[in-house]
Design a protein around this nucleic acid. Structure first.
Lengths: 205, 205
DNA sequence: GGCTAAATTCATCATGTGTTGAATAATGCG
DNA sequence: CGCATTATTCAACACATGATGAATTTAGCC
């Protein structure tokens, strides 16, 4: 109790990773409130630190945001998990399973939630999300769509469904979708996603 | 040029529908910037009016938001269009076509965009969106899922895909999805959505 | 031990926000 | 015409925000 009241000015004893704590707090608060909604003061408070320190380390709020969006999990791993064809199951199931593995734990959920929330209100963030999806996810996962006509389009449609799922399940919390079990979600969504891979799509039908 | 500078105080000549203009401006600005991002001053400016007038008519910003979200198109019509089984095509195609008919024109896009954007940052708006989807859309469209096991879940999954589509196409603007033609989008998405209606879904597989 | 550099806070600024109350101008009813 | 009502703006408040520069305390090197 009262750990927040760090008292008087000056350097603290020991070598605490304050910069890291600020980053973690930033991810959490950006994730909860989005870019505009998250105030530097709120982030500083969550890190138990004076607002000025945030500026000392990161200069401006936007730079802090960019720094906080350096995601803790490796996007390449994600993309590879989706691309990996060695398992028996199809792309659809691989995609939804990887999706859940990230979203179901708050540590992984934080940054993308922040990115997603912020992309809705800030063009900078929208651009960031666009690049992230395009380069980090789609760019690598596209190997699973090699040989498929309009592969890029189909892959993007798949991603769009996953984004919608994230919003409905974790932000808007529509029932029953929000509280259905992971396994049930896989059984529900996987075959539908899979159809983006297998299904026909002829301009003339 | 200079129409904004309405000059001195007092009532204006004629009987202009200023309240309506404020509402329209509110829909536009809320749609572009979301609830928190849209300032009363910006809305007032877009309506060519003093900020105080906004409060005179609507009291508070939140009430203005709620008033602006009284959507101009009839949700019942939308829901019925999706539910209507008399046409030859399946629910999937009906859903994506109705979706496009609303989103492709800015007048219809405005309010939901505002609702969607705001739902990402404000719990009030999230609740509003939840109720809107549940009552206005799902509630009526569910007749198309009568007799289908887990109909509610499947319908929600469908809606989640449409929401994701809206975000990727109209907010984040991922290419090529953002500039694909309506017809192509229908051919791409309709059969996948349809699978939520027809496809099997057994808890035990 | 002394001194520089880093970490941290404090006080403060300029700006933008939602909101309010009073003032002014036009309308419409008697 | 006179007068209450409505429409509209002006000026201001209280508050939150991002940012800055100076002051204070500790760490680390010679």
């Amino acid at each position: 109790m009262g750990k927040v009241l760090r008292g008087r000015s000056g350097r603290r004893r020991g070598a605490p990773d304050t910069k890291g704590e600020i980053l973690a707090a930033a991810r959490a608060v950006f994730g909860e409130r989005g870019y505009d909604g998250a105030s530097v003061r709120a982030i500083a408070a969550a890190a138990g630190v004076d607002p000025a320190l945030v500026h000392h380390y990161f200069g401006t709020k936007e730079k802090l945001f960019l720094a906080a969006m350096e995601i803790p999990w490796d996007p390449a791993l994600i993309a590879d998990a989706i691309a990996d064809d060695s398992t028996g199951v199809g792309v659809g199931e691989r995609a939804i399973r990887t999706f859940l593995s990230v979203w179901e734990q708050p540590a992984g959920r934080g940054p993308i939630l922040a990115l997603l929330r912020s992309a809705m209100q800030h063009e900078t963030a929208a651009l960031l999300l666009r690049q992230f999806v395009t380069r980090a996810i789609l760019g690598r996962a596209l190997v699973a769509f090699q040989g498929v006509p309009d592969g890029a389009l189909r892959a993007e449609a798949m991603v769009s469904h996953l984004i919608g799922l994230a919003i409905v399940r974790y932000v808007v919390k529509l029932e029953p979708l929000a509280s259905v079990s992971d396994e049930e979600l896989v059984r529900l969504v996987a075959p539908v996603l899979q159809r983006y891979h297998d299904g026909p799509f002829e301009p003339g039908e």
